[in-house]
Design a protein around this nucleic acid. Structure first.
Lengths: 103, 103
DNA sequence: TATATTAGTAACCAATAGGTTACATATCGG
DNA sequence: CCGATATGTAACCTATTGGTTACTAATATA
């Protein structure tokens, strides 16, 4: 539990939507949960725990409220990995272009 | 099963290593499995099925051999999503830089 | 101080994931 | 044709995931 992979953290679509919501700015736990009417608050709370454990979000306690905000730093690892494949797919696009020009 | 998310497909470290291996060029199923001595061939076969179902790899049958190669196209979705957060973390780096200069 | 409000946790459950061994299927080579 | 090789699948097991409801702890407020 202490420090799971960002690849695992972003695998779940609900967790990605949570991060997307936080992109606009910090939110309280409850407010965040309200944005997912189809699942319960504890379910969201668990997703937040996963995001915390992978350091994709961090919290600031203000009285009884807990504010969540993004820390996108761990996504750099994901980006780096995906970028390895960029050259590959750009090659393919090049090949397609060439083929189109030759037809 | 027909068409699972690339986010899910790359969540597993073994599947990422399979893709990494294929980056150097196409490989046969068995040859691929040999690179993972700690897990059985059927386990690798199952990972390959997941990768196939998310269209990250495709196969070419040649006699009794099955050659696997990468199709990185679905990773574009991942890249696109991660890039949204780029601006965010670059801002943070900027802020750090600024703070360093002012100290 | 009593009561709402906010957030997390405990205990539980069904479904999925990732692994295993045993088996089926198809092709190659002698 | 027959044995060896290459690959995938079936059946099964355990751990993890994502969800639920019920409860606890802490802080704000009337």
């Amino acid at each position: 539990m202490p420090g799971s992979s960002p690849f695992h953290a972003i695998a779940d679509p609900t967790r990605r939507r949570i991060l997307d919501a936080l992109l606009a700015g910090p939110l309280r736990a409850g407010e965040l949960a309200q944005r997912f009417p189809r699942i319960s608050r504890p379910a969201v709370s668990k997703h937040l725990r996963v995001l915390r454990s992978s350091h994709l979000v961090f919290t600031e306690q203000r009285g009884r409220e807990v504010w969540y905000r993004i820390d996108p730093a761990p996504l750099a690892e994901v980006e780096k990995w995906v970028q390895q494949y960029r050259a590959f797919w750009e090659e393919k696009l090049q090949a397609l272009k060439k083929a189109a020009e030759e037809s």
